[in-house]
Design a protein around this nucleic acid. Structure first.
Length: 509
RNA sequence: GCCGCGUUGGUCAAGGGGUUAAGACGCCUCCCUUUCACGGAGGAAUCACGGGUUCGAAUCCCGUACGUGGUACCA
């Protein structure tokens, strides 16, 4: 029916880009790329009261970092511009008026106070539904109840109004969801949603349907929170453009809090100590910064990977996927129906896998920046990459390269002498003094020679090498961690090795 | 309250009438490693409950419970 797959992500620029949002983008993107289609980003900024400065640009930055570039958007242009709903304002009214003309919508003049009174009355009467719907609309101040002349008079007078959809009673509204299968709503439970607000802006309900039509969207994927309003959209499609032209729907499962109940929110991240946004988000008013996955040291490949498998898998045991593999293997039908609790431990595991999998050079610049922000200047790149290669198995997040690797670039600032003090004695002191002399004479400074020399002197002093390795490590590294101790000595060179041994020896006096 | 959607170990999950109910994260034990990791070998841990249907139900049906979303001139 559709010649081309066209999908869209429709964010509201109101703040940071949430994990769930990125996953929605991802699934849209994968589906589009798999089917040779287009991925469109349309900014849904119809609520001017919630506009947040900088949020739109931030969203595009996040998409770029994730490698999810749109084919058409505010930023990328395209044949269906503008891609910002506030700039499309004039296009929506005609559809709302068409609906009125055909008897599928009406003018409503009720004030906020009147609506509140209505709901309170319904509540007091023990009504099961508090909605503005076919049961109560004839008691309200709208063009359905008013005489045509009365309505016209109010309109002429400039009385503020909204346009509401008129949902008929006793009608079945069925549709097929690509993830959930056949779903049927009873129109008696669907309320007369506002389509056009008093300020002339459309609500989401009118805007999605009109824009999806105008932009020739073939498949519409969105979060599960939209499922209850799907019948309104279906009705709108039916009246406006025909059900045959309607995109295929898929309602994605939610990402839930790791502990308790509910949808994962920014607050949960703050509370539990992990990010919820893709990148750092600074609130333009309060100036508060909310941490992002990028900034705490995630690789975009890992971020995409972990999001992809949160609610989807390809049916095999594979868990680590490149973007290309995801594009090849993704299928919307295999997306889960149930929400998934977010597990930060598993998220970190993915990053660890990707740190090991990718060539260190591909993310070396970011690691270098971390060193430099800690006042460690990297001059020799080749040496830096060698160090990264040596320690990457020990790193889960990018800043771990710093803690695992600083001592390759400068003497340890804290030396855990407590770890060796208890068993320290004159014999060991003698051994290291002797080792120092021997090392100073070595001209061919490399791993194997250093280890041989070490063992020979130990044997000569009737000491077990095992008792001496830890002290050496503490001297060079400062603590009980890091790669093989002679690898380290080989890397940092003669001068640094000798200096660090001397320094610790003096501390132990 | 009402309406919708869901429910396989602690978490992510495969499996959709007959399986010893995969795998991964995390946890524990051991091996490797004279550190910490990586890697390897094991272990504990699951079909929400109750009724059906069936020779046989994690799988199909109905209830219940629980979870979750919606119930705005927000998206």
């Amino acid at each position: 029916m559709f010649s081309k797959v066209r999908v869209r992500f429709a964010p509201s620029p109101t703040g940071g880009l949430h994990l769930g949002g990125v996953r929605t983008v991802l699934y849209n993107y994968l589906f589009a790329k798999k089917h040779g289609g287009d991925f469109i980003v349309r900014v849904e900024d119809t609520d001017q009261t919630r506009f947040v400065e900088g949020a739109e640009a931030y969203i595009f930055d996040c998409l770029k970092w994730c490698g999810l570039e749109p084919d058409e958007s505010v930023l990328h242009g395209g044949a269906y511009a503008p891609y910002r709903q506030s700039e499309r304002k004039v296009m929506y009214r005609q559809y709302a008026e068409q609906l009125i003309k055909e008897g599928h919508a009406y003018y409503a003049f009720d004030t906020t106070e009147e609506l509140e009174t209505m709901r309170e009355k319904l509540k007091a009467s023990g009504s099961s539904s508090l909605q503005y719907d076919q049961r109560i609309r004839m008691q309200m101040n709208n063009s359905l109840r008013l005489l045509p002349e009365e309505t016209q008079a109010l309109l002429d007078k400039g009385m503020p109004y909204v346009i509401r959809i008129k949902v008929n009673a006793n009608e079945a509204i069925p549709f097929t969801d690509m993830i959930r299968g056949d779903i049927e709503f009873d129109s008696n439970n669907v309320d007369d949603k506002v389509l056009l607000k008093a300020d002339g802006m459309p609500t989401y309900h009118l805007a999605v349907v009109v824009d999806d039509h105008l932009m020739k969207i073939s498949h519409a994927f969105r979060g599960e929170e939209w499922l209850p309003s799907a019948p309104v959209h279906i009705l709108l499609w039916k009246h406006l453009f025909g059900l045959d032209a309607m995109p295929q729907w898929a309602h994605l499962p939610l990402i839930l809090k790791p502990d308790g109940n509910g949808k994962l929110s920014k607050r949960d991240g703050d509370r539990l100590g992990f990010p919820v946004y893709a990148m750092d988000w600074q609130d333009p008013v309060t100036k508060d910064i909310t941490k992002g996955f990028k900034e705490i040291g995630f690789l975009p490949e890992a971020f995409i990977n972990l999001l992809a498998v949160l609610g989807w898998n390809d049916g095999t045991e594979q868990e680590v996927f490149t973007m290309d593999e995801l594009i090849e293997k993704f299928s919307i039908e295999r997306v889960h129906k149930a929400g998934a609790k977010f597990d930060f431990e598993k998220a970190k595991w993915y990053n660890h896998e990707w740190i090991k999998k990718l060539p260190v050079k591909s993310y070396g610049l970011r690691v270098k920046a971390i060193f430099e922000s800690n006042a460690v200047i990297i001059n020799e790149e080749e040496y830096f990459f060698k160090v990264m290669e040596l320690i990457k198995d020990r790193c889960t997040l990018l800043p771990d390269f710093y803690t695992q690797g600083v001592f390759f670039f400068q003497s340890p600032t804290v030396i855990d002498t407590d770890a060796i003090k208890a068993k320290w004695d004159e014999k060991k002191n003698l051994f290291f003094t002797e080792l120092l002399r021997a090392y100073q004479l070595i001209t061919d400074w490399e791993h194997a020679g250093l280890e041989n020399e070490f063992k020979e002197i130990a044997a000569a002093n009737q000491l077990k090498p095992g008792e001496l390795m830890l002290p050496l490590r503490i001297m060079l590294v400062g603590g009980k961690f890091g790669p093989g101790v002679f690898d380290i000595a080989g890397m940092i060179g003669k001068e640094a090795t000798v200096n660090r041994i001397e320094h610790t020896l003096s501390l132990l006096q």
